[in-house]
Design a binder for these strands. Sequence first.
DNA 1: CTGAAAGCGCTTACAG
DNA 2: CTGAAAGCGCTTACAG
Lengths: 335, 335
Amino acid sequence: MGKVRQADIARVAGVSQATVSVVLGGNRTGVRLSERTRLRVLEAAERLGYVPDPVSSRLAATGNNLLGVYTFTPAFPDIADVYYPILAGVEAEAAALGKDLIMFTASSAAPDRIRRTRLADGCLFLGRHVPVDAIADLLAAGFPIVHIGRRTELGGRIPHVGADYVSASAEVITRLARAGHQRARYLREPDDAPSSWDRERGVRAAAAEAGVSLVVSRTDGTDLSAASIRGWLDDGVTALVVEETDTGAVFDATWRVLRAAGVSVPGDVSLAVLGRPPAGVEGPLISGFEVPRRELGRAAVRLLASLVEPGTGEPSLHRLLTCPPVAGETIATVG
Amino acid sequence: MGKVRQADIARVAGVSQATVSVVLGGNRTGVRLSERTRLRVLEAAERLGYVPDPVSSRLAATGNNLLGVYTFTPAFPDIADVYYPILAGVEAEAAALGKDLIMFTASSAAPDRIRRTRLADGCLFLGRHVPVDAIADLLAAGFPIVHIGRRTELGGRIPHVGADYVSASAEVITRLARAGHQRARYLREPDDAPSSWDRERGVRAAAAEAGVSLVVSRTDGTDLSAASIRGWLDDGVTALVVEETDTGAVFDATWRVLRAAGVSVPGDVSLAVLGRPPAGVEGPLISGFEVPRRELGRAAVRLLASLVEPGTGEPSLHRLLTCPPVAGETIATVG
DNA sequence: CTGAAAGCGCTTACAG
DNA sequence: CTGAAAGCGCTTACAG
C-alpha cells in the first residue's frame, strides 16, 4: 500500500499529471475536458485508491485555512469561566467558515515565539495585557490580527472586537441612581487594562450625570475587611459596585467579607458587579450585566476571516458589542 | 511585509537558500559550516522575523511541531464538563513539550476532511465513536495518531490512552455488595461505545463475583418513570447504578425521576454513578469514581509525541489510567 | 481540448 | 567548507 500520487493515476490513465489535478479538483478553472478523459482519470483514481495529500495541496494553493489563537494567559487551566465561552464562540464560527484553529500554547509565550503565529493565515489574540512590540511587528508586516477585547495601545491601531463596558457600566450606575442611591463605592482591579478603564469611565460619567457621589478604590481584594465596609456604610454609602475580571478575585473577596461581616445584601447595602458574577456564588442573583463572550469569539473570527480574505468592502476594524443588563436581585430601592 | 522565506534570508546573508536551511535546521546532517556563516544566517533570520512554513517543511518531510486535536463532537459547545478537562490536560502537556495545537473544527468532520489532520505531525482523536475507515487509512499511511479513550475497533490497533472503566466499575459494584446490596439495576446508554461496554463488563463481572443479582437496562433516560423505578424497588432492588457519558442525560433523568417520585437517596435506594455526576446537581455527593480526564489529556499528548519522534524505545501503544473511587454519600448499608 | 512548465517553501543528497 | 540541483505532491497559469 504505497502512497498513490496523481502521477500514478496519470500514468494509468495515459494523461498528464496536471490533467489529473484538473479533473480531481473538479475543474474549477473551467478548462475544457473531454468526458472520456475525465472518466478515465476518475476511474483510475478510484481503482488505485487515490487520497489527496493535504499538505501538498496546501503548499500549492494560497493560504492554509488556519486561524491562530494566541492567549497570553494559558487558555485552559484556570480562568475557565472567562475564556471558555469565548473559545467556544471562536470554534463555532471557525467551524462555520470551514477554518481550523491553531492554538499557540502557553510555552509559545516566549517573546520570539509570538512570531510563530504567522504560520496561520491570521491570528486572534486574547488576554488582559498585550505584548505591544510583538503586535506592532505583526501589524507592520501586514499580518492579519484581531484582538478579542478592546485595545488602546499603538494609537488604537490594533483591530479588535470588544465589549462595550463603558455603556454597560454607566447603565448600572444609572440603575442605582434610579433606585434612589446617592453614594456608592466602586471597587476596581489595581492594574491597568482597557477593560478596567472602560468600566471606570462609564461609572464616573454616569455618576456625574446622575449626581451620584462615587468613590473609586483600587483593590486586589486582599485588603478588604469588615471594618472598611462598615466604614463606608457609616459614611452613607448604600451601594457597592465591583469590577469583574479574569480571576473574579475582587468580587469573591467582597462577597466573602460581606458575608463574614453579616452585612445583608441588598438589605444593608446594594451590590452590583460590572460583568457577570463568578459562577458558584451561593445566594441571590447579583445585579450587573452580561458579557456576550461567545458572540465576542464569533465576531472576532468573522473579522479576522474578512481580514484574511479581503473581499466585500473594508470591514470595521474596531467593534464593540453590547452587554445586556442583568436585573438581578441585589439592587434595593432606597430613600 | 509578505512572508519571509529562507530565500530572503539567503539574499541578506549572502549565502544560498540551502545553506540557510541547513543552519536553521540545526545542521542535523552534520555538514561543515563556518561559524561566521552560521551567525550571519541566524542574525538575518532574527532580523527579518523568519518563521518556517510548516506546510513546506512538512512536504519536505520533517516535523512542524504541531499536534492535531480532532474531536468528532464539537469540542467546545455543550459537553464542557467532559471535554474541557481533557483539553486542559492536552494544552498543558503540549505547552510543556513546546508543541502547538491544531484544533480541527467540527466542520472538518466531513468524511474527507479528516485527512486534513495530516497537516500536523500527528493527531489526537476524541469522541464517543470513531470514523473507522478514515482512521484505518491514517494508520495504514503510518501517520501517528492517538485516541483519547480506549478503542477496540480495527482489531485493537488504534493507539489509545483511556480510563480503566472495567476496574473502576467493578469496584463500585463490590462496594455495593460490601454494603449488603443483593439486587441492583444498571442503567446504561443505548448506543455502543467501548467506554459503555467496559463499564458493563466490569459491572457484570463484579456482580457475578459478589453474588449480586443485577439487571442491565439500556436507556437514554426518556423512558424512565416513577412507576418503573417503584417497580424495581418492589422487586427488591436496593441500588441503582448509572453510567456517566458525555451528555450526562441518563444520570440527569434518573435523578429527576427519583426526586419527582419522592424516592429518597440513599434512604429508599442507594445510587452510584460510573464516573462523575454532572456538575450542578443539588444534593448529596453521588458515590462513584473520578475519571482522570486531565491526566488522560496529558498522557495522550506524551504518547503521541513519542510516536511522532521515535526515540527512546517503543512506547506502549495502549494505556489505561486508574479511576480513583469517590466514596460519596449515596451508598447506604442495608440488610 | 490537453500537455508541459513553473512554482509553493522547504530538506536532503550531491557536486564542487 | 559552500552552492546548485532535485524533489516532496500539488495547483495554476500558459502554450500548443
